[in-house]
């Protein structure tokens, strides 16, 4: 379906959020295929799942660079929502993001709090200049701690370490995480055996509808059976050794 961009927000020098109307039910963790008619069609997680939807795009290559030039009023074609979503309930959650992983976790955190659940959020970034969405989360009453690789803001070190510290002092019903694959594997190693752990992974998407096999890992289609997986399920199939 085509939609017009209603707002563009610069989150940091490399990340922009595009807001648009898309009257379809979307659950946090699901993604869509975004096409501007010029670049490639690319997979993006929904960073807003309410009435005005959104995707939050990091500039990393040709197409994301083209997308960053899009202005309000310009047209995007959206296919989706596709894939699985994060578990959302009134239980207690630890959410862990690395980099732009915060984009798909933010709506999950808001939904959990809206359902009467509790969440602690730890957000990792390379450095202070890359931080975004923290205000949004705090405005929703979510307790956020930050980790940076260089210590320029919050905890100095990996976000997985910070998550480990929180986990040692409190009990959680769920951990959900989104970020670079090495981070997700570390989350799996640390927590999957101790608590229900869900992770959202990326893979090369072409069709997005479960036809072409390009996104598959370990026999699972990331576009259908993922992108949100129970970590234990992947680990059983040998994911950590991949």
């Amino acid at each position: 379906m085509h939609t017009r961009i209603v707002e563009v927000v610069e989150e940091n020098p490399a990340v922009k959020t595009f807001r648009f109307r898309y009257n379809v039910k979307v659950l946090p963790g699901q993604f869509c295929m975004v096409w501007d008619g010029a670049g490639e069609e690319v997979p993006m997680s929904f960073s807003y799942t309410g009435k005005i939807k959104g995707v939050t795009v990091k500039k990393v290559g040709k197409t994301t660079d083209l997308l960053h030039r899009r202005k309000p009023g310009e047209v995007l074609r959206i296919r989706g929502p596709f894939g699985t979503h994060y578990p959302v309930s009134s239980k207690k959650y630890l959410l862990v993001s690395g980099g732009t992983g915060i984009a798909s976790l933010a709506p999950a955190a808001e939904k959990i709090v809206g359902r009467g659940g509790k969440c602690r959020f730890v957000a990792g970034f390379r450095n202070a200049s890359e931080i975004f969405f923290i205000e949004r989360l705090r405005n929703a009453g979510i307790d956020v701690e930050i980790a940076t690789d260089d210590g320029s803001a919050g905890f100095r070190g990996f976000v997985t370490e910070l998550a480990g510290k929180l986990f040692a002092g409190e009990s959680f019903d769920y951990i959900i995480a989104c970020g670079p694959v090495q981070m997700l594997k570390e989350i799996g190693r640390r927590f999957a055996e101790k608590v229900e752990t869900y992770i959202s992974i990326e893979s090369l998407m072409k069709c997005g509808i479960g036809l072409c096999d390009s996104c598959s890992i370990l026999g699972y289609r990331v576009c259908r059976e993922g992108p949100v997986f129970r970590a234990g399920e992947l680990i059983e199939k040998g994911w950590l050794e991949e």
């Binding site: 997005g208 509808i209 036809l211 390009s214």
Partner: peptide
Amino acid sequence: KSIGMEERKGYENPVIFEFEHGVLNAMGLP
């Protein structure tokens, strides 16, 4: 999948269009 002599990446996205009567694809034999 159909396999050829050399590796092929296939066409750039979009390579699929789904509509009410089926699917149109041009993967480009990746």
